[in-house]
Design a protein around this nucleic acid. Structure first.
Lengths: 245, 245
DNA sequence: TAAGATGGCTACTCCCGAGTATGGTGGATG
DNA sequence: CATCCACCATACTCGGGAGTAGCCATCTTA
């Protein structure tokens, strides 16, 4: 409460010429920074306590301000959730754009997207992206969100189809496979907490490996052997004789 | 509102001797039936509108009664959620018990559990089981739920470990693999709606096939060929030359 | 230094929904 | 027939949280 806005004056000192427009432009920018801080604080709170268990007073308190201040930057609670959602989804859309121009097999491009996807879900906005319920939003925003989600879903299906066609992905039903992959990754948001042993990227990586291999044993590959516990290669399709455990 | 309790009198007529205890015992049973109806109605409502967007008045209205009636069978809203959760989780625990005595490979036992798991998630109580947030419950019940969830998680990991040891499952990290599998299945609750083309069992089946095969191509198997679109077998590891789409 | 803009706070309103006090009805029991 | 109990409705209380009205401080710009 005491040291609010300590840096801005310092920053102003370091800008030499100071055109007449400078100040106002800096203010707009400052406002944008604050607005984003509100969004981030909301995401953090939603993350920890859930949307409905988070009051705007909570969010305000986390920023050392009061509720009307929050409303100064945001029209209502619903919009706050919406913004968090969009922030999360944008990371994934970026992943698609990035991968689009690469000349790789479908599976490799898919893996690239999935990795970013996993990272995004494990990020601060992951919760909002994943657990935001359409019922909590007005029809307009709910429609917006559904469209974005669908776009991502279709993108994954397309990559799967392409991978199947170019032979880099085992033949499968693209729709169901997309559901399975996205579900596994989305679920990260339910159990992942910061300060855990693994980062989001590492988890995404582990998942991609699992998806690639599948459960049924394969002839040992380099990547599979690297991950396996050091045990002599077992012949697949041999039923259990050793007791479990 | 008019035809409430139409059947009980009819049922009583069909019981010939009618011992003196009969009536009271029937009433206890009737009470239990009604209580379960309340739980089911709650699950249904939570399913459609979410926990926080469902008032007890809503649930009561769905049963053509009023709120105090609901409270007559249930102590509070939280307990309602809890009961729904337990009902869902019990289906999965049953799957574990059922599979425990079968003499099968780890992978086959795992598949059996996953199939029941998928069915449970797609059931009426799936939403509650999956999306019930611990923050909405008192510490006591939250702890209870966490324990049940953990039990299931550990059960899946154990099956994976056993499968890896008996050679029926490709070597992998049991913890991460369990997260991936459970996540994919849990996510069904987010998109599945009754009256869809596929039943819960069919979805679970499709997922199990996907998990088994993995994304990287394999030598064609009978089951894989059955699912693939009728296209000539492509040689894996050949990069795409055809343009996408 | 005056006037306006900008950003923030105090102190409300207002509604919704969880939970309850209390009373009525109908069937079982003596 | 009198009574009791199980069951359910009417009609409340009450708290919490979303959103607002209106005032104050500070900074900008003329």
């Amino acid at each position: 409460m005491a040291n609010r806005r300590a840096s801005p004056p310092a920053a102003k000192h370091s800008t030499p010429p100071a055109s007449p427009w400078r100040a106002s432009r800096e203010r707009v920018r400052e406002r944008e920074v604050k607005r984003e801080a509100v969004i981030r604080a909301a995401a953090h709170a939603f993350n920890r306590k859930g949307y409905h268990n988070t009051s705007l007073d909570d969010i305000a308190a986390a920023l050392d301000v009061t509720k009307p201040t929050v409303y100064y930057y945001v029209t209502n609670k619903e919009q706050l959730l919406f913004e968090c959602f969009v922030a999360g989804v944008e990371q994934i859309r970026a992943a698609f754009r990035e991968v689009k121009q690469l000349k790789l097999t479908g599976r490799e491009r898919l893996n690239g997207v999935l990795r970013h996807y996993g990272e995004a879900v494990a990020s601060e906005f992951g919760w909002c992206m994943v657990r935001a319920e359409e019922q909590d939003l007005s029809p307009a925003m709910s429609g917006h969100i559904k469209a974005l989600k669908s776009e991502i879903d279709q993108g994954i299906r397309r990559l799967i189809r392409e991978g199947v066609q170019d032979g880099s992905i085992h033949p499968c039903d693209p729709k169901m496979t997309a559901f399975a992959l996205a579900g596994a990754l989305n679920w990260i948001a339910h159990w992942y907490r910061e300060n855990q042993s693994m980062t989001g990227a590492e988890i995404a990586d582990a998942f991609v490996t699992i998806f690639e291999n599948g459960l049924r044993p394969r002839a040992a590959t380099a990547s599979a052997a690297r991950r396996a516990t050091p045990r002599r290669a077992v012949t697949p399709r041999r039923a259990a004789t050793r007791a479990g455990r």
